[in-house]
Simulated scan of single mutants.
Amino acid sequence: MRAFRYYDFLVAGMVAVLLCSNLIGPGKVCTIELPLLGAFSFGAGNLFFPVAYIFGDVLTEVYGYARARRAIWAGFGALIFATVMSAIILRMPPSPDEPWNATLQPALEIVFGNTWRIVAASIVAYWVGDFINSYVMAKMKLWTQGRFLWMRTIGSTICGQGADSLIFYPIAFYGIWTNDALAAVVVFNFVMKVSVEAVMTPVTYFIVNRLKRAENVDIYDLDTAFTPFSLADSGVRRRLDAE
């Protein structure tokens, strides 16, 4: 098993972005004024999306599906831990000796006290969406023989974010929002995220090319078992200096 120079840093960054998007993002809805379009409202968690999917695409493209799978499981474990600890801390009685607790406790409950439906939807949607994104990107790399990176990043995002949106919003809000509102939000978020992925393609190209040269490797998942339930390292490494 080869050690990589930057893989651990990318995993750490991916986990940090995931935790921020799920712990900070859901607590706020933002509204901005757009020229010609007027007021535009969106969940703050969407701000993390471009960074999160760049991490996922780069990990799969440079290090292969098996290494990306390990990163997804690391993020899944971190998300479960953060969710459990948030619930425990919120339910612990605040000290009556600290006057500011009377203000702090309700604020913490508003920001971090998501309902069980939102928590479950977030965890399941992340797990399914990220694995689909990584799987599609790795398979498309084999089909295209490593060409057309833009096609792989956008195609994998269409599949991964399609699954993510179809899972998250119905689990979290079905029966609370009207069916029309639910469908509109699903479609809007899907279109927005695919559009952002397309716009961010040059950034992904730049990072992928720099990392491949720095690691001197380009991994193809020719011998990889594509089950998500494994932590095995695999993939055929092609050294760039041998090409």
Rank of each mutant, 00 (worst) to 15 (best):
M1F: 10
A3M: 06
A3F: 02
F4T: 05
Y7E: 04
V11P: 02
A12H: 11
A12K: 12
M14I: 04
V15Q: 00
L18H: 14
C20S: 15
S21G: 13
N22M: 06
P26H: 01
C30G: 02
E33W: 06
E33I: 08
E33Y: 10
P35C: 01
P35M: 10
S41C: 13
G43Y: 02
A44G: 08
G45R: 01
L47A: 06
F49E: 12
V51R: 02
A52H: 06
F55P: 05
F55M: 01
E61P: 01
E61S: 10
G64D: 05
R70N: 05
A71S: 13
I72A: 09
I72P: 03
W73G: 09
A74W: 01
G75K: 00
F76N: 07
G77P: 03
A78I: 08
L79Q: 09
L79M: 14
I80T: 09
M85R: 02
S86Y: 06
S86R: 09
M92Y: 12
P96Q: 02
P96G: 09
D97R: 11
D97W: 03
E98T: 13
W100D: 09
A102G: 11
P106Q: 10
A107R: 15
G113A: 13
R117Q: 14
V119F: 00
V119H: 03
A120C: 14
S122Y: 00
A125D: 08
W127Y: 15
W127F: 15
V128D: 15
V128R: 06
G129S: 12
D130W: 15
N133T: 02
M137V: 11
A138P: 13
K139Y: 01
L142G: 02
T144F: 05
R147P: 06
F148P: 08
L149D: 06
L149A: 12
M151R: 11
I154C: 07
I154E: 07
S156V: 04
S156W: 07
T157K: 04
I158Q: 09
I158N: 11
I158P: 11
Q161S: 08
P170F: 02
A172T: 15
G175E: 04
T178Q: 03
A181I: 06
A181N: 13
L182D: 07
A183P: 05
A184C: 10
A184S: 14
A184K: 03
V186H: 03
N189M: 11
N189D: 07
N189C: 09
N189W: 10
M192E: 11
V194N: 01
E197H: 03
M200R: 05
P202Q: 11
F206C: 10
F206Q: 15
I207E: 04
N209P: 04
R210N: 14
N216E: 12
V217W: 02
V217S: 10
I219R: 03
L222P: 06
T224W: 02
P228A: 00
S230G: 06
L231E: 05
A232H: 00
A232L: 04
D233E: 13
V236E: 00
R238T: 05
D241A: 14
A242K: 00
